[in-house]
Structure formats: structure tokens, C-alpha cells
Design a protein around this nucleic acid. Structure first.
Lengths: 339, 339
DNA sequence: CTGAAAGCGCTTACAG
DNA sequence: CTGAAAGCGCTTACAG
């Protein structure tokens, strides 16, 4: 059988309390005792039991990352960033993809999740408002990714959606385009709305009129970008440029444009948001608003670890700066990124 | 404070044993009692404590997926498949990226991992041989991804590397290319070697000579594909076609070719392996050997769950069929996939 | 069908 | 610096 703390104590000739102390490094144990215990642990190949520790100390050493189901390259990168940082901080990472309609604790698996981890990173769209409320009430450490709801006080991280979008649209305007359409995200998501706010802001700042019929909602995936573009293509005249609220929709839109025998950027200019991996590989390479997704994964873990260690530090709402990445789909003449 | 099983028992006027029984659904409890307990759980908003359950029942309800650090799109997709299936099976998924040089249990975090989960999916390259051995000895349920080592009996999944590679190279030969180079993977990885075996097999089957100098090892990432291609380009004459052991290296190679003022496929044909997302977006779209990565993630979880439930069922070594996806980089004239 | 009780493997005041 | 003991919140034979 697996050795327990009792086996080790016996082997080392000490009490289990002492073994526990050297295990946790912190308490005062004489050098000699510590050495003896360490040796015993090594020869027995002892590994502490995580469940027992979790129960006794009310701490699990694992963090959860909760993201919306069917999420694409964005969350893949985010997960990698979070995993790396968690590992570095000595934590494990549990990932959980909600199925969108998750109404909270009614879901058995979601309910258990909270007691499996020391804290949770929640993508804003992934979790119901009431579940979030509940977690807050139970004092579960949380950091929200993509911005916090206005009525709940939590640590959060979000890209500078308004600024980023506004800058991109300003760039398109700089090209001379006037009839600029937008493929936005789902009505309910705040960062989808923020990107549209940025779009409207840029129009206004440059004295252009806002035309509601030029804004079509997608679902942040390729397919919906394709469909939205098809609708845009039926307008007369067609838009001179299209700003998609994320790269996946931009890529879908690009396919729709091509299939209609038109060229990007000659017939329609195109820009996205996120700067996912593929953005530089599509033809023409996609001009987009870059955000450091991997870095946000890392930061989220760092903030969460800090919160776990200090429950009542000041709440932080970090806004991550974005930056324009000018490639060719907007009409600029830059060449492919070097690998 | 969070309600415990005692709170619920009191509220419902039963013993904690009974609460536990309705919690686990299986035992015989009268309908009336069950209803009363359920009501109590609901009004108290009770959630069982995962650590306590783990300690008492020696079962955690979570699975681990261990993959090599710095892994790219391949594992991103795999993780998504595994997560989806885990969720469906009522399990949580822990992910753990090893840092390559992980020598096993010396790593504190890795050591704890085993007791946090009911079983583990291990990417072959991610874990040392001795750690694997140890897990087997402790009877930890395991499924290996990418094939099992010859001396350890475990469930495993791997794509049909030899066949897939051979088919692709045969396709290139069919185009009329004779001088066909290969960018293979790291020397130590079995599926890298298997893909080279397939390459050699195809040459032999078609009466072509194997030229060792036409095979260069990369590291399965874009950069190394780029570098390897640069070396291939110095040969006189340059290869007519290049088969890269994965898509990332193929994409790196494509950049190298372009930067040298040559065209794919006119000057050099190119093919990859995996069929990652970006493969269809590069220019020209990449001809490659498709394997169902997402599906392998799902299958791995299914096999692991089966193993957890039945420790001594027959060991399964599943070989997943691959299929050629012909796009344009090989010289064929197909158009872009429709979105 | 239900309850009393032991036990899972740790941590942590409390003494000394 | 070290040990005895209680307790963390469950599950599971064992009785009845």
C-alpha cells in the first residue's frame, strides 16, 4: 500500500506532527530531525495525500479556469498561459468548459468544483450571474476575465476594448474609407458591446454618421462571421471596409468576400480583433487589434494567487492595453511577418 | 459557514449515513426520506466537500491530462476534446504541462498530482520512463497518448503514423517528384521515428533510393521547420518536394521557401502531418495527413474512464486511422476549403 | 430501509 | 523543538 504519514513517522522515529511540519517546511524543526524525516520520506517514496491535506487544511493547491464551451483559439492560448503560471506558482490547474446555458449550482459538477480548488478564474460569459453571486457569498477567491459585472465587486482583467476598437476604426478611416461596417459580438456580452462603443466613438470623432444597418451581430465564431458578411454584401452599395469584433469572425468574413468574387483589401478592407495565431497566416494577412492573450492567462493566475493569499487586499480591475497590428487586409502594404 | 452533511442531516431529521446515501444515489432509501433529504439539501444550498469525499472514498472525480510544455495547437485541440468528454462523463479535468526535463517524482507538484486524480492521460513525450513505471506500480489508471513504450503494458492511443506518412509520400511520388526530402521530429520520439519509417517505406515501395542527407531533424515547432528548410535549400539540387513530420514545421518551411524567392508548389512541393486549424489558411493551403485530434482527446477520456471503472479489463492499444487531405501545397489544384 | 461508529490521512492549536 | 489529541467532512461495513 502507499505509505502514509504514519509509515514515515515510524520509519523516522518521530510523531506524525513532526512529519507534517517538515512536509510543510514552515515550522521550527531541528536540522537533525528534518534530515531524518526527509530521508525516511525518500526511502519510502512517500507522497502526501492531496485529499487528506485538503480536508484538514482547507486548501487544495489547485486553481480552476472556467471558460465558455466551444471556445476557440482565444481560450486555448489563455489556458496555456494560465497553466504555465500556475505550475510556476506551485498550483495545479483545473479547466472547466461550461455549456453556456449553465444556470449555476443546479449543475452537480459545477457545484463540486468550488470545493476542489482554492480559487477560480471565470470568463465573464461562462457563468451565470447567480452562480457568481453565490461564489462571492462563500468568499471563494475569484478573478473575472473580460471584465466584472457592474454590481459585483471582484478582481478582473479585461483588454482595452473601447480604445482598441476605436483605434482600429480610426485607422480604417485614415485609409479614406467612409462606409465602414461592423460585425459585432453577441448582444449580451459586455466586451462585444464595448467594441461597438469604440467603433461608434471613432466614427463620431471623425465626423462620420453612425448607420445602425451597418452593424450586424455575430457569435464570435467563424461561421457567424461568414453569414454576417453575406448579409453585408447584399447592401447597396457594399461597405468599403468591415471591422469584425474578433479575428475568427473576420476570417469567416474573408471567405465570404472571396466566394463572392471580391478581393480583400481592393474591394473591401477588413480588420479583426485579438490577433490569434492564424491572423498572420490568412491571405491577405489580417490587420487586427493585438491583445496579449497568453499574458492575460498568466496575469489572471498571478492575481488569483495573490487574492488567495490575502483575502482582503484591495480589489483590482486591470485594463490591459491593446495595440494595432497592421498587416495587409486593411489596405496597407506591409509584407508578411517574418517567422 | 458552509453547510455540511451534519447540517443537512439535522434539517432532514435523519442520520448522516442516510444523507450520504441519497447523495450517492445508489443505495436503497425510501422515496419519502429521499425527498425530505433532497429538500433539506436544496434549502440549505448544500454542496458536498470534494476533499472529504476524496479521502473517505478514495475517489476524486477528476482526471489529469499531462502534456509536454510549450506544446502548440495540437495539444490545444486535444485538451478541448478531453475537457468536453470529461465533463460529459461527470469528471473534472486537470491539465499539467511538464517542462520536458521532468525526471519524475522529484518534482513536488507532479508527486501530488497522482493523489488528486482518479487516472491520468499521459502524452508519451511528457513524462519520464521512471515516473511512468512508478505510476504503473501504484496501479494508477493510465492511458498513453502517442503510443506506449515497448516495455510497459498500458492502454494507449496513437495515430497510424507509418501508414499516414507512407500514403503522403506516395502521393508526392505520384506527382512525379523523385527527390523528396523529409523534416522529421526529434530523434527520441517514437512517433517522429514512425513517420520517418513511413517515408522510407514509401520510397522503397516505389523503387526510390533513400538518401539520408535528405532527412533533417526538427523539433516539431515552426522555428525548427524554418531552420531545417534553410539547410535543405542549400543542397544542390534542391529537393523537389518536402514532407514535414508535422504542420507547424511545414508552415515554418513554407516561410523559408518564400523568403528565398521560391514558390510552393511550383518550385518545391510541401506536405505536413496533423491537419491543425491553420493548415487550411496558409497560402497555398497545406496538403497534410489528417488525424482527428479532438476525437483522440475524447477517446482518451473514454478509455480512461473505462479503466477507472474496471481495473483489470483487457489492455487496449488503439491505432487511429489517418487520412490524406489534399489541398494545394503538394501541387494539386483543389481550391480552398469552404468554410 | 436506517443509524452508530470507525476510519480515510492529514493539520493544528495546545501543552510541555 | 516535539508529541498527544482533536478535528476536517465524508463513506461504508456492520447491525438491526
Amino acid at each position: 500500500m502507499r505509505p502514509t504519514i504514519y509509515t514515515v513517522a515510524e520509519e523516522a522515529g518521530v510523531s506524525i506532527a513532526t512529519v507534517s511540519r517538515v512536509l510543510n517546511g514552515n515550522a521550527r524543526v531541528s536540522e537533525e530531525t528534518r534530515a531524518r524525516v526527509s530521508r525516511a520520506m525518500a526511502t519510502l517514496n512517500y507522497q502526501p495525500n492531496a485529499s487528506a491535506r485538503g480536508l484538514a487544511a482547507n486548501t487544495t493547491g489547485t486553481l480552476a479556469l472556467v471558460f465558455p464551451a466551444l471556445s476557440g483559439p482565444f481560450f486555448s492560448t489563455l489556458i496555456q498561459g494560465a497553466e504555465t503560471e500556475a505550475c510556476e506558482s506551485g498550483y495545479h490547474l483545473l479547466i472547466y468548459g461550461t455549456s453556456g446555458d449553465t444556470l449555476g449550482t443546479e449543475n452537480q459538477t459545477l457545484g463540486l468544483l468550488a470545493s476542489k480548488v482554492d480559487g477560480m478564474i471565470l470568463a465573464t460569459e461562462s457563468v451565470s450571474h447567480c452562480y457568481l453571486q453565490e461564489l462571492r457569498d462563500q468568499a471563494v477567491p475569484i478573478v473575472m476575465l473580460g471584465g466584472a459585472p457592474s454590481d459585483i465587486v471582484v478582481d478582473s482583467i479585461s483588454p482595452d476594448n473601447v480604445e482598441g476598437a476605436a483605434n482600429m476604426v480610426a485607422h480604417l478611416i485614415g485609409h479614406g474609407y467612409r462606409r465602414i461596417a461592423m460585425i459585432r459580438g453577441p448582444e449580451t456580452q459586455s466586451h462585444a458591446s464595448d467594441r461597438e462603443i469604440g467603433y461608434q466613438k471613432a466614427l463620431r470623432d471623425h465626423g462620420l454618421l453612425f448607420h445602425p444597418e451597418l452593424v450586424i451581430a455575430g457569435a464570435f465564431d467563424e461561421r457567424s462571421g461568414y453569414v454576417a458578411m453575406l448579409r453585408l454584401l447584399q447592401q447597396v452599395p457594399i461597405p468599403e471596409a468591415v471591422f469584425a469584433a474578433n479575428d475568427q469572425m473576420a476570417i469567416g468574413a474573408m471567405a465570404a468576400i472571396r466566394e463572392n468574387g471580391l478581393r480583400v483589401p481592393e474591394d473591401i478592407a477588413l480588420a479583426g480583433f485579438d490577433d490569434i495565431e492564424t491572423a498572420r497566416y490568412v491571405q491577405p494577412p489580417l490587420t487586427t487589434v493585438h491583445q496579449d492573450i497568453y499574458g492575460q492567462g498568466q496575469l489572471a493566475v498571478r492575481m488569483l494567487v495573490a487574492r488567495v493569499n490575502e483575502a482582503d487586499a484591495a480589489i483590482e480591475n486591470r485594463e490591459i492595453p491593446t495595440k494595432l497590428v497592421i498587416r495587409q487586409s486593411c489596405g496597407c502594404n506591409h509584407s508578411l511577418d517574418v517567422v
